[in-house]
């Protein structure tokens, strides 16, 4: 007879503050309830206020592990990408959020973890070692990430080049990455705006990519970032704000 395996919470020995900052955080029942309530509320809000439509829904995975990446121009983006995912995996979907924006003030960190289920990433120290913990959790648990490889919100709505950090997380990894394009979030709630305007928002989902065969080195990381960037741009409708500087750079 094999022994029962007990698996204590990975964040068992952390204080409440450490727990919020940690990548090992696991939701308890109350937090799961909050995530669920928030997800339901967001779905209703995005549908009613922004008339959210999702094209290519069939490309969305139903089970972790997976990673969603998209262009980033608004605080709405993470909420938007989470909205079409099944509620049953809500606890396993983490929005990867900038530590300096979401995790330095306690009140904001509480909101980010309790409702958004956000995990902190440091923009200053995005090294392979720092990202390996993300990589590990993705397959161990398994879980899913919502991630914006531009490394910050675009201030003019035009897409910024994807940073190679995404490659450090995904090169040589079998986890599928789903490119998405968000259209309308910049018009609804650009950086600096508090309350979103009533603008239509569309998410276009593309077929997933994997980078198992890409080498986990600098060239590989750049390759991953470049291919994902291309995939997101390809989803953008002709004449949309995205295809400008980045597209030109890519063509050259």
């Amino acid at each position: 007879m094999s022994q029962w395996a007990f698996e204590p919470a990975r964040d068992l020995t952390l204080t409440r503050k450490e727990r919020r900052q940690s990548l090992r955080r696991e939701s308890d029942l109350l937090e799961s309830g909050c995530h669920l309530a928030w997800a339901l509320g967001m779905r209703a809000y995005l549908k009613l206020w922004h008339g959210l439509t999702v094209e290519g829904r069939e490309h969305l995975p139903l089970k972790p592990p997976f990673v969603l990446v998209a262009n980033h121009a608004s605080h709405l983006d993470a909420l938007l990408l989470a909205a079409p995912l099944p509620l049953t995996i809500r606890d396993q979907v983490f929005a990867i959020a900038a530590e300096d924006v979401f995790f330095e003030k306690t009140s904001r960190a509480v909101l980010a973890t309790t409702f958004l289920n956000a995990l902190p990433i440091s923009r200053r120290r995005a090294t392979p070692k720092a990202l390996s913990e993300f990589r590990q959790r993705l397959v161990d648990e398994p879980c899913a990430y919502i991630l914006f490889p531009e490394g910050g919100r675009s201030r003019d709505g035009q897409m910024l080049p994807f940073k190679p950090g995404i490659g450090m997380m995904l090169a040589e990894s079998p986890v599928p990455v789903v490119p998405c394009h968000i259209d309308g979030a910049f018009a609804a709630c650009p950086a600096g705006r508090r309350l979103p305007l009533r603008r239509r928002i569309t998410i276009r989902v593309g077929a997933s990519l994997t980078f198992a065969e890409v080498k986990n080195n600098r060239a590989g990381w750049v390759d991953v970032a470049g291919r994902l960037q291309e995939a997101v741009i390809r989803l953008a409708p002709a004449g949309s704000m995205v295809t400008s500087s980045v597209a030109k750079a890519a063509e050259e």
């Binding site: 204590p8 919470a9 696991e26 308890d28 029942l29 799961s32």
Partner: peptide, 21 residues
């Protein structure tokens, strides 16, 4: 109960935990 559930790993079984609560 929360401490017990987190220590044993039972907290990952949300439905069981909900029934206990």
């Amino acid at each position: 109960y929360r401490e017990f559930a987190r220590a044993t790993g039972l907290f990952r079984e949300k439905f069981t935990s909900l029934l206990v609560v």
